[in-house]
Simulated assay, not measured.
Amino acid sequence: MKKLLLVLFVLTAFAANSILCRIALKNGHADPETFSMLRLLGGAAALFFWHIVRKQLQEIRWKIIDALLLCAYVLFFSLAYVQLSTATGALLLFGAVQVCMIGWGALKREKLSGSKAFGILLAVGGIVALLLPGTSAPPLLPALMMVASGLAWGAYSVRGKNIVAPAGTTAGNFILSIPVMLALSLLRQEPVHVDASGILLALLSGGVASGIAYVLWYQLVPGLSSATASTLQLSVPCIAAAGGVLFLGEVPDLRMVVCTLVVLAGIALVISADRKSLRGGRYP
């Protein structure tokens, strides 16, 4: 039950990132680059303070590749959400995550049972069906940016399977991301735009929905196969779509509801298959 509650919190936090970012950008509270910087700064501050309180500064780990992946994920995420709706952006993001993590699992020769493979196909099929003709196609460049963001997050999650200090590694990644983003900011030509609401939304996204949630995700990932970890994240677009209804007035049609149920059914099949594999000793 504890693990289930942690998974639910993390997935909801991931969806909250889409909602908070979309609210900030749609309503003109911040430009995407400034939102990204404040989001990373919020995560770095929250995690650094956490280590100070617990007197564990020595546990902070510095992994430049992970920090670069984090920057790529956050920046492309914000740039894409200038034009994408909450649900569409989340679907593209976690569809790309699915491809990245399943592909890595295949390279590592993780076994896929028939029921697990069917569950993955069902979940991905639900997302594809939602984006096929009948809904407005997303603009190409923002869509590609969100796919790039998803691939960066997928790689970040895969690398997280090998770490031994989730909190310290996540803190180090956020802290290292700040000078990277500052260097990138020297290339921007547009003026900085942010108001009090934009600052609050970005810090909430960074400190709670990103920093804390990523630590918990790092703790959960080592106990999951790549297939299960990526498929679980396919529930995030469903949660984000619900948030879009509540906070942005994005009312879903019947197809959104049906596709959401299909995605959740696929997730349930993958989780069930993984439990059987674990009981049978096929995963370490």
Rank of each mutant, 00 (worst) to 15 (best):
M1I: 04
K2F: 13
L4K: 14
L6G: 11
L11D: 02
T12E: 12
A16R: 02
R22T: 03
I23R: 11
L25H: 09
H29K: 09
M37Y: 06
L38C: 08
R39W: 06
L40I: 14
L41S: 10
G43H: 08
G43M: 10
A44G: 00
A44L: 00
A46Y: 00
A46G: 04
L47S: 06
H51A: 13
V53R: 15
Q56L: 06
Q56A: 13
Q56I: 04
L57I: 09
I60H: 04
I60S: 07
R61C: 10
R61P: 13
K63R: 13
I65A: 15
D66K: 11
D66P: 11
D66E: 14
L68A: 14
F76W: 04
F77S: 10
L79S: 03
V82W: 01
Q83W: 00
L84D: 05
S85D: 13
S85V: 01
T86K: 06
T86A: 12
A87K: 02
A87F: 00
T88H: 01
L92N: 05
F94K: 06
G95Y: 01
G95K: 03
V99M: 08
V99N: 01
W104L: 09
W104Y: 10
K111T: 03
S113E: 10
S115M: 14
A117C: 09
A117R: 04
A117H: 02
L121C: 15
L121R: 03
L122Y: 08
I127C: 15
I127H: 07
I127N: 08
L140D: 03
L141D: 02
A143H: 02
M145N: 00
M146A: 05
S149H: 00
G150R: 09
L151Q: 05
A152L: 12
W153P: 14
A155D: 12
Y156H: 15
S157E: 13
R159D: 10
G160D: 11
T170Y: 11
G172K: 11
L176P: 08
L176R: 01
L176G: 04
S177G: 07
I178D: 08
L182Y: 01
L186S: 11
R188F: 06
R188G: 10
H193W: 07
S197C: 09
G198L: 06
I199F: 05
I199T: 00
L200N: 04
L201P: 11
L203S: 06
L203N: 08
L203K: 02
S205V: 03
S205P: 10
A209G: 07
I212N: 05
I212W: 04
I212D: 03
Y214C: 07
Y218N: 15
V221M: 15
P222M: 07
P222E: 10
A227W: 05
T228A: 14
T228F: 05
S230E: 11
Q233T: 10
L234S: 08
S235D: 13
S235A: 14
V245R: 07
L248R: 03
L248E: 09
G249P: 13
E250Y: 09
V251G: 07
P252C: 13
D253C: 11
R255L: 13
V258K: 00
C259P: 01
T260F: 02
L261S: 12
I271N: 15
I271R: 15
S272I: 00
A273P: 13
K276A: 15
G280I: 03
